[in-house]
Simulated assay, not measured.
Amino acid sequence: MFDNIIYAGPEIIEALGETFYMLVITIPLAVLLGTPLGTLLYLTRPGSFVKAPKFYFMLNGLVNLVRSFPFLILMIAIIPITRLLVGTALGTTAATVPMVINAVPYFARFVEQTLLEVNRGVVEAAESMGANRFQIIWKVLYTEARSGIANNITIITVSFLSYSTVAGLVGGGGIGDFAIRYGYYRYQTDVMFFTVILMVIFVQAFQFTGNFIVRRLDKRL
């Protein structure tokens, strides 16, 4: 049992490195692009600050459209875009393209819902004191919603750790590709079991770290 694990050790480390490489690219871009997109959804929704129902309808429909695609189908459907951006449709870097495209609207919807949970009275108080729209967004909405946004980052990190395994089905590398080679082709269940344990440990570590940050940022606790 341990001989197989030791023999596969270098490949496990490489696969984990590829998986975390995907996350290091995907999650920051999802936060960087998804936060303003989610804020825009919040600002333009009916009854909010900006009265732009047609714009909200189109933007909301686009977000729902991208989110409705199963991830594997999305990876295949945007192969021409992936080739255009990174020069190839195979490999770890190529796998990050559909992951980012999927993660941005996913996180944007989280941000929109989190901003909706901000007490409207706090926003109205800021308006009555003469705060402009940028100040309301930056100093009121984001400040009040910071723990929720941190929780959203934790959720999306754990979710896309799972999504990254799907990349192995199309040659994206990572732990998914390792699972196919050792679990499906070689059927080495001991190596697969060890890999599953590692993934569970990483998920728990992400969740614990995220929960700790959320507690530190939540002023209600």
Rank of each mutant, 00 (worst) to 15 (best):
G61V: 15
V63W: 09
N64C: 10
N64F: 09
N64K: 15
L65H: 03
R67C: 02
R67I: 09
S68A: 06
S68H: 02
S68M: 08
S68Q: 08
F69D: 00
P70N: 07
F71Q: 06
I73A: 08
I73Q: 08
I73W: 09
A77G: 02
I78C: 00
I79C: 05
I81T: 04
T82S: 00
L85I: 14
V86T: 07
G87Y: 02
T88E: 13
T88P: 01
L90E: 12
G91I: 07
T93Y: 00
A94S: 07
A95D: 04
A95P: 02
V97G: 01
V97Y: 01
V100M: 10
I101D: 03
N102T: 12
V104D: 04
V104Y: 07
P105C: 07
Y106C: 04
Y106R: 04
Y106L: 05
F107V: 04
A108D: 06
R109Y: 08
F110L: 15
F110G: 10
T114D: 10
L115F: 05
E117P: 06
E117R: 03
V118T: 12
V118A: 06
N119G: 06
R120G: 14
R120D: 13
R120A: 12
G121S: 07
V122D: 14
V122I: 14
V123S: 05
V123K: 10
V123W: 02
V123H: 03
E124I: 12
E124W: 08
E124T: 12
A125E: 15
A126H: 11
E127C: 10
S128Y: 11
G130T: 14
R133Q: 15
I136Y: 07
W138N: 15
K139G: 13
L141F: 09
Y142C: 13
E144Y: 14
G148Y: 04
A150G: 08
A150V: 06
A150N: 08
N152C: 13
I153H: 07
I153N: 05
I155E: 12
I155W: 00
V158G: 03
F160D: 00
F160W: 03
F160M: 07
S162H: 11
S162R: 12
Y163C: 05
Y163L: 06
T165I: 07
V166G: 04
L169R: 09
G172F: 01
G173L: 02
I175A: 06
G176Y: 01
D177S: 06
I180K: 12
I180G: 10
Y182D: 03
G183E: 06
Y184S: 15
R186D: 14
R186F: 12
Q188H: 14
Q188E: 11
Q188L: 14
T189D: 15
M192K: 12
F193A: 15
V196L: 13
I197Q: 12
